[in-house]
Design a protein around this nucleic acid. Structure first.
Lengths: 251, 251
DNA sequence: GAGTAATTTATTGTCTACATTTTTTATTAT
DNA sequence: ATAATAAAAAATGTAGACAATAAATTACTC
């Protein structure tokens, strides 16, 4: 188990970065570095929902004591990426159906507002940034680099929130997008067919044309399409054995 | 300083509650108890913005070690009620103008959505609860119990989010309402004249009548009125001495 | 006496040790 | 052999100790 976690955490970002840095790397940055590595690992699905996040193991991996790990886990827990069960430990969150619907509902509400703000505040540079991001999305998709694409797809929405210029709303969008990634892992049905790069492009066009209502409508449509690609009707994704077997006996 | 903090923390909720409980009060609950006491103390303005929150002192007050206090401060920091300055400690947050405007903007966006959801989901019982809350608000106001009223006024909005039935949005509203309290302390201009109990009542009426658009409009109006009662134009509330004196020389 | 440098004091950041709880393993009885 | 119980192991929760940093005080120079 210990070794397994190690592999998953270090697969893309080598932990040796700690020693390789010349400067002692002021301690304050330790927390955020570990936070970001763990978040990335979860969002890129190297750590699946339900995975136990042992404090000792993580401390060993990152070369720090449990105190530090504890703070990071607490942070992730506040963003609902990690669930802490008292006296039992931290686990990668496994959002329920209700939670999934909540997150999508919240996204529609908040991101419609965000896109409206973005329409009225954006600069030409930012439009270019957005287009660049979408083309990179497309690239990942063409290469079949699915996990990278999920992260990039989220980054698009974060950038939009950034353009809107409200840091409070940005923080909420960031949290919701992260949680949405976990939801996709658990509830995505089939292989995502027609993916949403085109939808992102259309949204950019509407923003560029300063057509607020159209941009808002496209965003709602886009998020609805995301929800429609999920299977939020059946029983729990796993572990709800009662539901699984009661269903079997109904046939 | 130590003694001062002690008085402010214990003025309304005696800390002796710890010993008076029969059962050992399972440890897990410690965190949340301390969290709630501190949050209440801040929201009721017994702890003013900018107040230093010393870990040692708080640990002494609540009879726990710094580890526990640290977790609670971390939690409050994540909700932007407390600001942690690395190597300097935790302070009750002092929202800037921009932050204040952000919070109000976010509230308008989110709470408009929340009230629309509430219109479509509410039960008769919940309407009664809301009316009861408003009458208690009025009572506090008549008695000149200003600090209690601020908290109750926030509770009204929390209840609304509760009715809307989306826990994610509820959490955001809770955070925003808390931050708004800090903003009021810092930026309220003059004594609040015609207060918003009536506005709350009107919103309830619209919800009860299931008039979604009217409820939404009233909510926006209400929040705009809140913002209009603030002074968000001048320099920083304090500590921005440059702004203060450059202004003086302009006259 | 005012301003600066050095020293002391206080506070936060991190680690380690111990207590408590949970989980696993071993034992026993049915 | 299976289930229940008891013992052992492992993990989390909390406290306390030490290190690193910031604040305050004192000493010193001009």
């Amino acid at each position: 188990m210990t070794r397994e976690l190690k592999n998953k955490m270090s697969s893309s970002a080598p932990i040796t970065a700690l020693e390789s840095d010349k400067r002692p790397l002021r301690k304050a940055a330790q927390n955020v570095r570990i936070y970001e590595e763990m978040l990335t690992a979860i969002l890129e699905q190297r750590l699946a929902p339900g995975t136990k996040l042992s404090e000792d193991t993580l401390g060993e991996i990152f070369g720090v004591s449990r105190s530090i790990i504890r703070i990071v886990l607490q942070q992730l827990a506040h963003e609902r990426i990690v669930q802490i069960q008292p006296n039992r430990g931290a686990f990668v969150a496994e959002p329920s159906h209700e939670e999934a619907r909540e997150v999508l509902q919240a996204r529609r509400l908040i991101e419609e507002g965000v896109v409206r703000l973005a329409v009225n505040k954006h600069t030409d540079t930012e439009i270019n940034d957005l287009r660049e991001m979408v083309s990179q999305e497309q690239e990942s998709l063409d290469r079949g680099n699915h996990k990278t694409w999920i992260r990039q797809s989220g980054d698009f929405h974060l950038k939009l929130a950034d353009i809107a210029g409200n840091q409070t709303l940005s923080a909420y969008v960031k949290e919701l997008v992260s949680r949405n990634s976990l939801i996709i892992v658990q509830y995505q049905k089939g292989n995502l067919s027609a993916c949403s790069c085109d939808e992102h492009s259309e949204i950019i066009d509407a923003i560029d044309a300063r057509d607020e209502d159209r941009a808002a409508a496209l965003m709602l449509e886009h998020l609805q399409a995301c929800e429609d690609q999920l299977n939020l009707n059946g029983g729990e994704p796993k572990s709800d054995l009662y539901a699984v077997f009661s269903k079997a006996s109904e046939n």
